[in-house]
């Protein structure tokens, strides 16, 4: 039943865009105004009006004017709440959307920044199945974070957002659509497993240790050692000259990840493998560079570098 209704709604929006006010994507900030806010009674609102009708007939029948007055006040208050529901949305603006980072298949945290000249309460945003309520306080700003489901890597346009409220009494539901013209970048999903990247050829020849600042060990004096490296106290104890050996632990060799080395694979498989290597390099803290067609990225490390590489990978054609 629900699915049928949704299909009907989609059909109507496709066929009758003018009537259903199917909103084309529009640049931000998107401000709600009277021509795009719709109001219908909720189920509770309909039930409540039936109850009011019963109260009306009852008080008329018993010609009880006090009860009639009470019914009228309650009914008028309920009707006025419709205007308050409208005002809750009128003038609300979506200033910007900040997208988080996510790999395809995971949900992406989308932060919506709402602005309003006056405080508002109990406004809800729907994004797909996710719904989040928020209030705008006196500062006039509110951030709402919603998860956005992703499927494939690349630029993903933002879907329509529904902003709605049943404030103040839950009798009426005012809503409006916002369709920001913005896309978010979804990172590629790394492959499950595979070979490590081929290391540069001179990897094995490099000395295990190299000179550094940290004291590593004491060893027999060899002629030519600087005098200040001699461990005088230890030498005196043992009766032979000992030298302090300084070293710096070798960082793992940096990876030069290259699109061209993965010949013979299709694009997505290449991207998935590179994504896995990038992830491993990031976790191990290994310095890495990335060569992609048209955009070589220099060696670097850290979250910023990782994000840059992943974004470059994601935006490949």
């Amino acid at each position: 039943m629900r699915d049928a209704l949704r299909r009907l709604q989609q059909l109507a929006e496709r066929r009758l865009p003018a009537l259903t006010r199917f909103r084309r994507p529009e640049p931000m900030p998107i401000e709600l105004h009277r021509r795009r806010i719709y109001i219908v009674p909720t189920g509770f609102g309909i039930g409540f009006s039936v109850l009011l009708l019963v109260m009306l007939v009852g008080s008329l029948n018993y010609s009880n004017n006090a009860a009639l007055l009470l019914t009228c006040i309650l009914g008028a208050a309920g009707a006025s709440s419709m205007l308050i529901a409208f005002r809750a949305l009128d003038g609300l603006a979506l200033a910007s959307v900040r997208a988080g980072q996510a790999i395809a298949g995971e949900s992406l945290a989308l932060t919506l920044e709402f602005e309003s000249a006056r405080p508002r309460s109990a406004i809800r945003v729907d994004l797909g199945t996710a719904c989040q309520a928020f209030a705008v306080d006196a500062s006039g700003k509110a951030d709402v974070t919603l998860p956005l489901a992703t499927t494939t890597r690349g630029w993903q346009p933002l879907p329509r957002l529904r902003v709605w409220t049943t404030w103040p009494l839950g009798l009426f539901r005012a809503w409006s659509w916002m369709h920001p013209a913005q896309s978010v970048l979804v990172w590629p999903r790394p492959e499950g497993g595979g070979p490590p990247p081929r290391l540069p050829a001179d990897e094995g020849l490099r000395p295990r240790l190299h000179r550094g600042e940290d004291l590593a060990a004491l060893r027999d004096y060899r002629s030519g050692d600087p005098r200040k490296h001699i461990a005088w106290k230890a030498s005196a104890r043992l009766g032979q000259l000992l030298s302090k050996d300084f070293e710096q632990p070798e960082s793992r060799p940096e990876w030069r990840l290259d699109w061209r080395e993965l010949e013979g694979m299709d694009n997505e498989a290449r991207i998935a493998r590179l994504a896995r290597w990038l992830g491993e390099a990031h976790v191990q803290g290994r310095r890495h560079s990335l060569w992609l067609p048209g955009q070589p990225i220099e060696v670097g490390s850290g979250p910023g570098h990782y994000a840059r590489c992943m974004s470059a990978l994601a935006s490949l054609p």
């Binding site: 009306l56 007939v57 008329l60 029948n61 018993y62 010609s63 004017n65 009639l68 007055l69 009228c72 006040i73 309650l74 009914g75 008028a76 208050a77 009707a79 006025s80 709440s81 308050i84 103040p168």
Partner: peptide, 25 residues
Amino acid sequence: ALLAAAVPLALLAFALVPRLSSPLW
């Protein structure tokens, strides 16, 4: 505040909702 705002409309409805001259039941 909502009830107070509703009073004028309520009074109008109260004065103008047609009364039954004989009860329905």
